[in-house]
């Protein structure tokens, strides 16, 4: 035990040193590039970091997080349904699931959001708000269609993750469950899904990252999330580089921690099945 701790601390020192060198080098490179650029472009960070601008960014961040969160829930639920359809004993359900996944995976999300918001919503002749039955509230139609489009689109990717996770549970487990007389639904519920869960979590976090990134495209339906906020700020004061750099920093602040968590989970859940 003591030995391990000594070993661990020297490893930690090495890691810290490496991180330090990396930070210094990155700083040098970034500063060099910055200096070169500043020869032809006057940077005005003090204007960009006006508290009013940052408030606008924070509001945009809130919208991005809301939309991503809702779409993740919707996408996961729908994705599970599609995955179960693709693994069902009925050929027609399998084929329909396959068509759904292939259609949506193979068009750009941008095209899909344009199609949904300017095409499909017109078919439903939607006004500026969409009424929600039962709850008796009206939702901004940009948020409504944005979340619907993101959910439908992500469901095609998430369903593949679920499918891979379920298929990774060995076939013999299903046989063992069925031979006890469990029905298809029971063996899924009690035996397969609980085991698939741990294999699904890391790639699902990865998909959440993709979803946050995809949500940037919702600016094309003038939903005021992070990216549109930045564009609007640029139109008010032409601080292109500054605002877009801040925008990038905001996205990295969401996605990098998620990326790290995904990596951690992958390692943690991969270590054997023992708890």
């Amino acid at each position: 035990m003591a030995e391990m701790r000594v070993l661990g601390s020297s490893r930690l020192m090495k890691l810290a040193l490496r991180a330090l060198i990396l930070v210094v080098l990155l700083a040098l490179i970034i500063f060099g590039l910055y200096y070169l650029l500043s020869q032809s472009y006057p940077f005005r960070w003090n204007l960009a970091f006006n508290p009013k601008n940052l408030d606008a960014f924070n509001e945009g961040l809130l919208v991005t997080l809301q939309v991503s969160g809702l779409a993740m829930i919707g996408g996961a639920l729908l994705g599970l349904l599609v995955a179960l359809a693709r693994l069902s004993p009925f050929a027609i359900l399998r084929d329909m699931g396959m068509l759904y996944v292939q259609m949506l995976r193979n068009i750009p999300f941008l095209v899909f959001i344009l199609f949904m918001y300017f095409g499909v919503s017109k078919v439903f002749s939607a006004g500026p708000t969409v009424p929600v039955p039962l709850l008796d509230i009206e939702i901004d139609s940009r948020i409504f269609w944005g979340v619907i489009a993101l959910s439908l689109f992500e469901a095609s990717f998430i369903s593949e993750i679920f499918r891979a996770g379920i298929q990774a549970v060995h076939k013999t487990q299903i046989e063992a469950a069925r031979s006890l007389g469990m029905s298809y639904v029971q063996s899924m519920q009690h035996v397969v899904l609980p085991q698939a869960f741990r294999m699904i979590i890391p790639p699902l976090t990865g998909e959440l990252i993709a979803l946050v990134k995809e949500s940037a495209l919702l600016m094309v339906i003038s939903l005021e999330e992070l990216t549109l906020t930045a564009r609007q700020l640029v139109q008010q004061t032409p601080l292109n580089f500054e605002f877009y750099a801040i925008l990038a920093a905001y996205y990295l602040a969401i996605t990098l921690p998620l990326s790290f968590v995904s990596h951690l989970l992958e390692r943690k859940l991969a270590i054997g099945k023992a708890r």
């Binding site: 013999t172 487990q173 046989e175 063992a176 469950a177 031979s179 009690h190 035996v191 609980p194 085991q195 099945k273």
Partner: peptide, 13 residues
């Protein structure tokens, strides 16, 4: 009908 498999196939979770 009970069946016992070569590789046990107990539910690991």
């Amino acid at each position: 009908i009970g069946i016992v498999f070569q590789s046990f196939n107990l539910f690991p979770h």
